[in-house]
Design a protein around this nucleic acid. Structure first.
Lengths: 281, 281
DNA sequence: CGTATAAATTTATCATTATAATCACACCCC
DNA sequence: GGGGTGTGATTATAATGATAAATTTATACG
């Protein structure tokens, strides 16, 4: 009872966060523009230093701003980076870890659209990059370590492709499953295993895809990635099943109480690297 | 000079944020579990209260935790909500606003997969819900206001469908474009206009889809949504072009310096509603 | 027995001070 | 004269202490 009316407690710092967001929108601030300084915000919002600070921290965690010290320093509008978006998305899946099946169902749907979106946007440089990545796995691996590296490079091939996708929405949606595959512990384990067929067939498909793209034959490209994804799914799920079986056979002490995965909570190195804007690309 | 080595300045609060994330992962904490209290964290991490607080604020902004006052209060692990994830994703597109074309290209790719994923998961309750939503637009609108409401309900139909998608990755990817359509100002303007054909054909497609789903005919369902999306895209883009034309004809004072859209920065009401866990324990 | 009030606990906010990073500009050595 | 170097102003970052607000638990009252 009492003032149980408004049900929740809008915290001051949250309110300020939102106010700042609105401020950004209202004033049409672009990335790189500066927000008022701490002192001014304190006066303008009539809040204490700590509170304003927390509000800014919230925005910073969302990747919307970035602060710098020194003269002319302060909070600067920031275009949230791909990495940050991926990390944030990863958090969403921290307790809802998708399965390999889930991921490939999404990829099967998205990749043809990705290829279609690439029509006419790939230049010589792009083909150069793609071919360059492929050299890492144009041959059987010599060690388990190389095996794993090859898998990552295979995924990087797709990331390069995605970098050229002119549809930002589609690009994000394609980038994320790839990131998942690179981060999920289940996949790590799969990638540690020899899988000659996956490499050989993956390489073949990518080679064919490149050829089709070079010729501008989008329809054929779509068909190829469809088969590519289907094949990869089959092979990955087979390996997954195999691993699971050997896992049950081996250890019955079973630490598998939860099916959640580490994902983003570990790799958060972004904050330690350069400020996000970096070199652009 | 000095230790200019690590190039960047890992802020204390960021470091602590990361440490806490690791703590969560290491201790296999589940949603609802409590983190150590402020004081304990201060002692354990040897940081000041404000710094710890900022770190927690960062996690809270990402939707990973939630804090409560009072005895037994503190920071609680939180499964990041759909809403939160959408808002965060929206920020990513704040300066990269996709076009209507972009959105529908994604939807055309995703919706058949969505329908496919629904095989066998829709119960009577689901059909009931879907049919109920459809009643809002089974008739021509009587006013512009109803017009707009009908459009939203049409989108809600899809959201209901998505709620039943067992693939969390696919569900997120489908949910987001719908959210975009509901939030983008361009769409708001389009939805304010009479569009009898969009309503009629949309309703027809949804009716057919429902029928196919009831019969378990997934293949037909996929075909229907494919056409549905294609039709919607055509009609939406036509209206968009029309609006743009009339816009240029009308006002040459042109406030269209930037093509970015408001998106998430406005609707951040989540913080004001109930705590995220909702259902609670 | 139920309801309202009091108490205890814990976060939320405020205020103040000291520290560290950054930039501008003058300065000095070569 | 030129380029590195130091000094000071500026601004965020961090620490500390005190007070307010909110929520749970316990208790007293009708």
């Amino acid at each position: 009872m009492k003032q149980a009316r408004q049900s929740a407690k809008p915290k001051r710092s949250e309110v300020i966060s939102e106010a700042l967001k609105e401020y950004i929108a209202q004033h049409h601030l672009k990335p790189g523009d500066r927000l008022p300084q701490e002192q001014e915000l304190i006066k303008a919002l009539d809040a204490s230093k700590g509170t304003v600070r927390e509000a800014l921290k919230g925005l910073e965690a969302q990747g919307l701003i970035q602060t710098r010290t020194g003269p002319g320093g302060g909070a600067f509008i920031n275009e949230v980076s791909d990495d940050r978006a991926m990390t944030l998305l990863g958090n969403y899946f921290f307790f809802r870890s998708p399965t390999i099946h889930d991921i490939y169902e999404a990829r099967k749907a998205l990749w043809p659209a990705l290829v279609k979106s690439l029509e006419g946007v790939l230049d010589d440089d792009a083909f150069q990059q793609l071919a360059s990545v492929m050299t890492f796995y144009d041959h059987p691996p010599a060690s388990l370590e190389e095996e794993r590296e090859q898998r990552f490079k295979e995924l990087e091939f797709h990331l390069v492709l995605i970098d050229y996708c002119p549809n930002p929405l589609l690009a994000l949606m394609c980038r994320f499953p790839v990131r998942l595959l690179m981060n999920m512990t289940v996949c790590q384990r799969i990638y540690e295993q020899p899988n000659p067929e996956l490499r050989r067939r993956g390489y073949d498909y990518q080679r064919q895809l490149l050829e089709a793209l070079r010729e501008g034959d989008i329809v054929r490209g779509c068909k190829i990635v469809s088969e590519h994804m289907q094949t990869a799914q089959t092979l990955m799920e087979a390996k997954e099943a195999m691993l699971e079986k050997s896992f049950f056979k081996a250890g019955a002490d079973s630490d598998i109480d939860s099916n959640r995965d580490y994902l983003a909570l570990t790799g958060y190195a972004e904050a330690k690297r350069r400020p996000e804007q970096s070199g652009g690309k």
